[in-house]
Amino acid sequence: MYGSEDLELNRRHLMAGASACAVVTACPSASWAATESTSDSVTSKVSLTVNGTSHEIDIDTRTTLLDAVREHLHLTGAKKGCDHGQCGACTMIVDGRRINSCLTLAVMHQGDAITTIEGLGKPGNLHPMQAAFVKHDGYQCGFCTPGQICSGVAVLEEIKAGIPSHVTADLNATSAITADEIRERMSGNICRCGAYSNIVDAMTEVAGRQA
């Protein structure tokens, strides 16, 4: 729970024309991604905890979590694909759960623990899922990969937590980690290069190691 006392709203009247452009340039928060040629902008302070580090930012209320992380915190691992929750490229893990960061507002995440691909592992110290994607060629162009990996890590946790899926035959039994289960649970992550079978292989290997 969070209270309303830690929330400050601030309505600024932005001038149209050239000066509006200057504001946009000076303030990446009002980036191309979120703002149109509107005359009013409302900003709000929010504290985002991303990969263990807390950041206090003052942003336009329209800013999605994805835009806040990419444009303000400059963590560009999570990608903007469709920006409508259809492709999964923006998937982040928030309070232990994978979500589409493009379909949630940054101001709604005061105090939440947010993990992006940058927080899972680093070059030289890869998360097992990252290493398995490399080993199995779970990508080609790589654009969807940060979302696939965040989703993949969370999917194995969901199965471990006993959450059933559409293909789980018996709702009252534990679901096994099968290719069918992985495919169904990963359907919110689109890969236009078609690396799906290798992604299933990578996840299967990590699941086996965990078991």
Binding site: G3, S4, L7, L9, T35, T38, S41, V42, V107
Partner: peptide, 11 residues
């Protein structure tokens, strides 16, 4: 997206 104000409800 059109601009909007935002509040967190307490009840």
């Amino acid at each position: 997206m059109k601009s909007f104000t935002y509040e967190r409800a307490s009840s």
